[in-house]
Design a binder for these strands. Sequence first.
DNA 1: AACAAAGATGCAGGCACTGCAAACTTGCGC
DNA 2: GCGCAAGTTTGCAGTGCCTGCATCTTTGTT
Lengths: 229, 229
Amino acid sequence: MTIDEGLGRRDRKKRQTRAALAAAALRLVAERGLDQVTVEEISEAADVSARTFFNYFATKDDALTGDTEGDRERVLRALDTVPAQVPALRAIRLALAGVIDEVEGDAALWLLRMQVVMQHPVLLARLVSGNAATEQAMVEALAARTGHSCDDGYPALVVAVTGAALRTAMVRWATGGGARPLAELLDEAFAAVAAGLPDPRTGGVVDPTTDPPGATASGGQRTPVRKRP
Amino acid sequence: MTIDEGLGRRDRKKRQTRAALAAAALRLVAERGLDQVTVEEISEAADVSARTFFNYFATKDDALTGDTEGDRERVLRALDTVPAQVPALRAIRLALAGVIDEVEGDAALWLLRMQVVMQHPVLLARLVSGNAATEQAMVEALAARTGHSCDDGYPALVVAVTGAALRTAMVRWATGGGARPLAELLDEAFAAVAAGLPDPRTGGVVDPTTDPPGATASGGQRTPVRKRP
DNA sequence: AACAAAGATGCAGGCACTGCAAACTTGCGC
DNA sequence: GCGCAAGTTTGCAGTGCCTGCATCTTTGTT
């Protein structure tokens, strides 16, 4: 649980209620499945009215995924503090450190959360992809950092790909029951991405049949693959 | 519109109804926004009852995103037809050719669809990420192809990253109003991924401060970035 | 203790979505 | 053509998510 440093009774209670609702939601859904649990039951378990539930979470799903928007904003702020000369991929990896720490610090909660989320793809999508505004801010920050134009595609691609890397690392972490540190799995994923996802059979070297790095295009219009009718 | 080759009147009508519903949904939501349009209104516009809408689409969202599940299955089948010795990334790029053709063949529909989807992040997530079963099948196919174990992380990472590449390419395609061919944009994205998303300031060479390709981990546990309190 | 701000709750209502049963259409064999 | 079987459409009733509004209770302050 995050520390409630220097807050009045009021805000402390709010935090408690929010945490209680989230915990109840996770526990119940883990037991019975997403649509076998009603908001009423969750509220009951947290000992508040159903109407109050919606004072804390906009949707039932939000109680399960946690504050993803807040997390994204934290990553964005962290990215600001990384020196400008650090290359893009590594900068993002560093900016993710805070979130990683939080997840590993609350391992039990997050393992349960991932277990639930993985059983309900609708939630999995919400977990990493999401808000347009913050995502766009991330793209802009990266564009400024690398000197790219915002719409030449590179920054957006990097954001999307690192998001995918984070997601797979978290899934792998949860699948293994948290045995291997999340930070380690994330480093592996980032290393593989930085290496260009080499096909292992080519010995880690970029395959010569692949398009050269700087190429803008190379005739992908044709359809060399035949699909049955 | 896809060709209704050799189908009875019945199935032809079904296709028509389905297309009418999808088109009506896209048009109305583009005009007014997602929650200013009811299923009833969509059905009205397509001249069927509201109940019938749900015979065609499980959710309102599904009418907007199109048959993503079917598309994924097609990609999966296409992957089967790519010779085993083709390296992973390129194999996936080839397997995507069929879907790319479909999108560019129905450019008007898909541009509208992307416009709508991009304005509603909930839909954007559904568009590429999604079903667990097919996604898992894709991971397994890739694992078999590359000789990887299914749970060593590499195949899942490749699937997630290429999904991200496809998504960004489609967004870029739609943002540009379809001016540049989707196939070309996708090739660019794949090329960038294959090159390891090089920070342009390092001249396309993998930065030496990055983890070496084969490394399993390198002490990412510490938190070198300070966030304000 | 009194007051103001903020939170919790109940209630009414809109809308997504589902199961069921009753029409209705279509394809097919006669 | 006729009628049957199978498939489709539709209405209806019901559940559950979610919202706006009015009211009551709690909390922090003077």
